[in-house]
Design a binder for these strands. Structure first.
Lengths: 342, 342
DNA sequence: CTGTTAGCGCATTCAG
DNA sequence: CTGAATGCGCTAACAG
């Protein structure tokens, strides 16, 4: 390994000068800079990151914590896409990205402890927001820089988070359905202890209420990716004598499952029933019919959280922020206008 | 930050003793170990990873290089799943995982250079294998530990790689179709400079040949996720007067698009046309109909590559290996038995 | 504008 | 079984 000393020797300057050249310090003459850089190139010198980290007490690395991978939720294309967004700014800022590897909640917690105490990373991005999360509490207590994608369940004012306005999105997409003449609108969502689901559902209900439509319990279903129990619940929904004419689904991937069940039930979308959902991941445009869905700008969700986090690590005094990423409805083919039944 | 010295002072021993306790050195009495450990816990001591890395010249970190994210291919659930597999062994071995963030090929290349020269990681996993890849060449020249998931296009004997037997998988799944009475079988695959596609296609052709069936150019289509041109090509396929009765698709996600196009063409699967594909990602079981697909054990692909890589970083002399992960056909509802046309 | 010195936190000789 | 000394590669005062 070629070190700073080798470069110094070879270019006839002192190690500190080389160090300054690396940092592009303005107090070094252009001439020596050139000379040193030439030698660096010749020798194939590259700074040792660990040595540097040790002295500057910063790693220029940020950690990304994925949700517990014990369920299939991780196969959601949401994750590669948000990773891509995060990666873009991380790369731009010359940082590096460390990904959590724990599978269970417990493992993840231990891992985070190591990351924090062992100074593996300067900050953390949490890719989920659950009710009563131990990890969040820990990070908050430690006053370790972190941002969460979604909404913190407590200390909302003190934790910077980047989120969509899921309530409004839920309301808008439901309103759209109402505008198209739908009155019997069901909701199918994922786990209830995720804020996304709750917010989107609340928006759905607000829209119903505002339009003077009733929201019945029978019309609301929560299912983790349509497995076993989920299929049954959805089955019940379709067998209701007062069958809905439209469904708001909280996630494109769940929609895929719903689409498939509807086909089994010989329900045609959008002719017999309309469907809308959230996220606008790639697959939502290649389903049949393609899905009307709210694009939540996953990439930006990632990019802005990374940006906010890096700012925070650079300046610990940075006040907590709430960043709301705009959404927009992508109109495709899964919704049909119907005549109001009077 | 609490350091090894603080622990030493507080427990009345020397720093080196503390260091040995951390390493669980056998030459330290159980008594002092206990004492020191107690103090460590009390003080909340955690070793500084950078300091350690600096002296031991190893990072216990491995880097994972994702393919260029300029295309949508990254949204394939294949990636979260393989990351999960990699993560599992990385976590088990107490390593950490660093993810590439570059978007273009160029960015990725620079990033890898930093990783390698700056000792960010001990080894690298390449999540793609393309023809004539510059990155692979670089790593190979540097003699830096790396493994590739897939097949290297050169130096196959010298580069450890973990792969499926895609040729055999392609042949088997095609044979299955043939056994079900199909004779006119088409192939739809992704980019031709990816080895997976090529191998699966070669298997498909071998099966046809062996069964004495002709393989025509018209029956083979390559498309990057059914966008623009892709749709057209597939459209042509369906409009052929001698329309295929079955299609082998090289990836579940592409199948989703094909499924949707078939629906547009009023082609019912499997009644009018049968479909098989590869990967068995979660979504293949929630499409309608659910897909008969070959499960390539993505998780294992990741886990074994991580394992092989770690072995290699631990023992540079480790010979290059080829690890073949077994596959199996998952029979679902997208294939129909037909009567042979004589 | 540049060199000298010191030290980041830890593991590892070498003594004892 | 334990301690003292040394250095990993680098940056950051402090001098000049």
């Amino acid at each position: 390994m070629v070190t700073i000393k080798d470069v110094a020797k070879a270019s006839g300057v002192s190690p500190s000068t080389v160090s300054r050249v690396i940092a592009d310090n303005s107090r070094i003459s252009l001439e020596t800079k050139k000379k040193v850089r030439k030698v660096m190139k010749e020798l194939g010198y590259h700074p040792n990151i660990n040595a540097r980290n040790l002295v500057v007490k910063s790693t220029k690395a940020i950690g990304v914590i994925m949700p517990s991978s014990t369920n299939k939720a991780l196969q959601n294309p949401f994750f590669p896409e948000i990773l891509r967004g995060i990666g873009s700014v991380i790369h731009e800022m010359q940082y590096s990205l460390s990904l959590s590897t724990g599978e269970t909640e417990e493992e993840i917690f231990e891992e985070v402890q190591r990351m924090v105490y062992g100074s593996y990373v300067d900050g953390l991005i949490l890719l989920y927001s659950r009710v009563d999360d131990r990890l969040m509490k820990f990070l908050h207590q430690q006053d370790f820089p972190f941002v969460i994608v979604g909404k913190p369940y407590e200390h909302e004012q003190e934790i910077t988070h980047v989120d969509n306005d899921n309530f409004r999105a839920g309301k808008e997409i439901t309103n759209y359905l109402i505008e198209q003449g739908h009155q019997k609108i069901a909701f199918i969502g994922g786990s209830t202890d995720l804020f996304v689901t709750m917010d989107r559902e609340a928006g759905y209900e607000a829209a119903l209420k505002q339009a003077g439509l009733v929201s019945s319990q029978e019309y609301k279903i929560h299912t983790e990716f349509l497995e076993s129990g989920g299929r049954e619940a959805v089955g019940n929904l379709f067998s209701l004598r007062d069958r809905p004419t439209a469904i708001v689904v909280s996630d494109d991937l769940i929609s895929l499952g719903v689409l498939s069940m509807l086909k089994e039930f010989k329900c045609s979308v959008p002719d017999d029933i309309s469907l809308v959902s959230f996220n606008n991941v790639y697959l939502s445009e290649i389903t049949s019919p393609s899905l009307t869905t709210v694009d939540v700008n996953i990439y930006d969700l990632g990019a802005y959280s990374a940006k906010a986090l890096i700012e925070k690590t650079l300046n610990k005094g940075e006040p907590a922020k709430r960043i709301i990423i705009p959404h927009q409805i992508i109109y495709r083919d899964s919704v049909k206008k119907i005549n109001k039944v009077l």
